[in-house]
């Protein structure tokens, strides 16, 4: 008995976590998938009715806005964060004296809660007393910067705050990548008289392809999950102008009492994440096992 216990102890130790993950991740995903196929409203029902919730979802103008916002937000947030992160990393890679301090400053927003970031930017972008009022106070009476309360522009304030929060992190990723490039090749190129910018464009950046992919995955993942920032910055408004899939799901689940819609929208969010993460994880795990 004691012998059996000792040989199986590793499995016994791992079992609770594994069972928990099976139930609370995979079981729960199955539950949500099931409920998304029913007529559930305030309370879950379990008779499968087909894809009615998805039909309702795709017919909903609010969901349409949420998905459009996700495209705009995702594209700009990922694109600008990557470009800005790469530029900052290259600038910081030039043997800067106070590199440690600068890096600390660039990266600290990542330690903040999105709610704090949202609160800060909500105050800065507030037209009455924030940036707009300040520039007006300098004598530019016609200056307007009302994105926060303008339904057509409000989603860009979310982009602005999100880039502020995450670009330093992308910088850190790229900087680590730049440092891991073989210095021998760079030195050889420099001896051959190749200008620095060409060394970056032709040698260093192409060799960092895996890091671009990692940064993309992390940022895409952040974009799809974006919830707190919208809640704190715009509350999804004006109207539904800055709704994202995550805020739509939350509204359906906890304030509208529409469990079917909440489940269907959560499933779509998960499919989007799957489409991005599964190929990545698969290649990672394969590369590790080889």
């Amino acid at each position: 008995m004691a012998k059996w216990f000792e040989t199986h102890l590793p499995k016994i130790v791992l079992a609770p976590s594994f069972i928990a993950i099976l139930i609370f991740v995979y079981g729960f995903i199955a539950w949500t998938a099931w409920v998304s196929l029913t007529r559930s409203r305030l309370l879950p029902r379990y008779e499968i009715e087909g894809f009615i919730q998805y039909d309702r979802l795709f017919a909903s103008p609010r969901w349409d806005t949420a998905m459009n916002n996700l495209y705009i937000f995702g594209a700009l947030f990922i694109g600008v964060s990557m470009i800005l992160g790469l530029i900052l990393a290259i600038l910081l890679d030039q043997q800067i004296r106070v590199e440690g301090a600068i890096r600390t400053i660039y990266l600290y927003p990542m330690a903040l809660s999105m709610i704090v970031t949202g609160t800060a930017w909500k105050w800065i972008l507030n037209p009455g007393l924030g940036l707009e009022a300040m520039v007006k106070g300098w004598g530019y009476e016609n200056f307007t910067f009302d994105w926060l309360v303008n339904p057509d522009m409000a989603i860009y304030t979310v982009v602005l705050a999100a880039i502020w929060q995450s670009s330093g992190f992308v910088m850190a990723l790229f900087l680590a990548g730049l440092r891991s490039v073989d210095t021998e090749i760079i030195r050889a190129a420099q001896i051959d008289g190749i200008p620095t910018w060409r060394v970056y464009v032709s040698i260093i950046i192409p060799s960092m392809a895996p890091i671009f992919l990692s940064a993309f995955i992390v940022l895409a993942h952040l974009a799809i999950k974006a919830f707190d920032l919208v809640i704190a910055l715009t509350g999804g408004g004006p109207g539904y102008a800055t709704d994202l899939p995550a805020t739509y799901m939350y509204a359906m689940a906890f304030s509208r009492g529409d469990i079917g819609q909440a489940a269907a929208s959560a499933m779509i969010m998960m499919l989007v994440v799957f489409a991005i993460v599964v190929p990545y994880l698969y290649s990672e795990l394969r590369a590790r096992n080889d």
Partner: peptide, 30 residues
């Protein structure tokens, strides 16, 4: 290491990436 340990690891790792919206409703009931 025992047979299947890598699969268990992959399954656990995957749990890091799910959008938590997909577990909110059942977790509230649980």
């Amino acid at each position: 290491r025992f047979p299947g340990a890598n699969i268990i690891f992959a399954l656990m790792l995957f749990g890091c990436f799910i959008p938590f919206q997909v577990v909110l409703l059942p977790m509230a009931r649980m």
